[in-house]
Simulated scan of single mutants.
Amino acid sequence: MTPPRQRPRRGGSQSRSSKSASGSTKRSQPTRTVGPDAGPEVDVHDPDGVRLQKLLAAAGVGSRRQCETLISEGRVQVDGVTVTELGVRIDPLRQVVHVDGDRIQLDESRVYLAFNKPLGVVTSMNDELGRVDIGDYLSGRSERLFHVGRLDADTEGLLLLTNDGDLAHRLQHPRYGVLKTYLAQVPGPLPRDLGKRLRAGIELEDGPVAVDSFKVVDSQPGKALVEVALHEGRKHIVRRMLAEVGHPVISLVRTQVGPIRLGDTKPGKWRALSSAEVSALYSAAGM
């Protein structure tokens, strides 16, 4: 007599193994990939939101089709959850999106500008003493913008402007060590060990300071052009540091903040940062 065929047990070892490897996913309800240490499934779908691929395309990540491919390949995360379904909708004002680990700003009200502050202009949006300030160069804009850090009136160059308060705070905080790069003209000649001394650190009245990098860009009789990079943000730090080693600054230009370069932006002019530059700023700020 042939023994009766046994029905597979529900929840058997094979089923558990398969589920453990891939996790269960309901339509339009993306979840975290379930692993040995994974927490509970997280649904990031907002039925009242906007389709994810549409938002990514509008943010300049790529065409709608390219963004759909990024989602399908598991390269897009929403609030830390990898999304692979094309029907997902999200709230761009509330949820955080990363593509290949880079944060994408989806809020179209956010503004990110690179401004070339001219010599003699005060770092203020509305100077109480009536001096020429950076607000005078932005009179056509309606947004309430913050300047990320400051430049002295007698220092020119790159100043970041944004209405993204969280990012502005992070970029200025010493904890995140965002580098600022300057070109300084100083009296020459320069001793050969100047860079070594500055990298080792020197003592100022408010504590020690050390540069992250130093190089001589040009040298002429009686003067030299040097590039200094440091993450310090103390007042007049570059001028005080170079004066301490016997080479007071003649002129000073900030050329870079984190990954953002001044480039060929003319004094008194500004340009909007690209989506790639904004993502790079978020990365530099650890966001």
Rank of each mutant, 00 (worst) to 15 (best):
Q29C: 08
P30T: 04
T31D: 11
T31C: 12
R32E: 06
T33V: 12
T33C: 07
V34H: 10
P36K: 10
D37Q: 14
A38M: 01
A38P: 01
A38R: 14
G39K: 12
G39D: 04
G39M: 05
E41L: 06
V42C: 09
V42F: 00
V42S: 07
V42T: 14
D43L: 07
D43S: 14
D43R: 15
H45R: 07
H45W: 06
P47T: 11
P47F: 09
P47I: 09
G49T: 13
V50E: 15
R51M: 09
R51H: 15
Q53A: 15
Q53E: 13
Q53K: 04
K54T: 12
K54F: 03
K54W: 07
K54E: 10
K54M: 04
L55R: 08
L55W: 04
L55F: 07
L56N: 05
L56V: 02
L56R: 02
A58P: 02
A58S: 15
A58Q: 15
A59I: 02
A59K: 00
G62L: 06
S63W: 01
S63N: 05
S63R: 01
R64I: 01
R64N: 08
C67Y: 09
C67Q: 09
E68G: 14
T69Q: 10
T69K: 14
T69P: 00
T69D: 11
I71N: 13
I71D: 12
S72T: 10
E73P: 04
G74H: 09
R75T: 00
Q77I: 05
Q77C: 12
V78K: 09
V78R: 10
V81W: 03
V81P: 07
T82R: 15
T82W: 03
V83S: 10
V83I: 12
E85I: 13
E85T: 11
L86G: 09
L86E: 03
L86N: 00
G87V: 02
G87W: 12
G87P: 14
G87K: 15
G87E: 11
V88G: 01
V88C: 03
I90F: 06
I90C: 03
D91H: 08
L93G: 13
R94N: 09
Q95D: 08
Q95M: 12
H98A: 07
H98P: 00
H98V: 01
H98S: 05
V99R: 11
D100E: 14
D100T: 06
G101T: 06
G101H: 05
D102E: 15
I104C: 04
I104D: 03
I104L: 08
Q105N: 15
Q105P: 03
Q105Y: 00
Q105L: 01
Q105R: 03
D107G: 00
D107T: 13
E108W: 01
E108M: 00
S109T: 15
S109G: 04
S109C: 02
S109D: 15
R110F: 02
R110V: 09
Y112P: 06
Y112S: 06
A114K: 07
A114L: 08
N116R: 00
N116D: 00
N116F: 04
N116I: 00
K117D: 02
P118Q: 04
P118L: 05
P118R: 03
L119Y: 01
L119G: 00
G120T: 12
V121F: 01
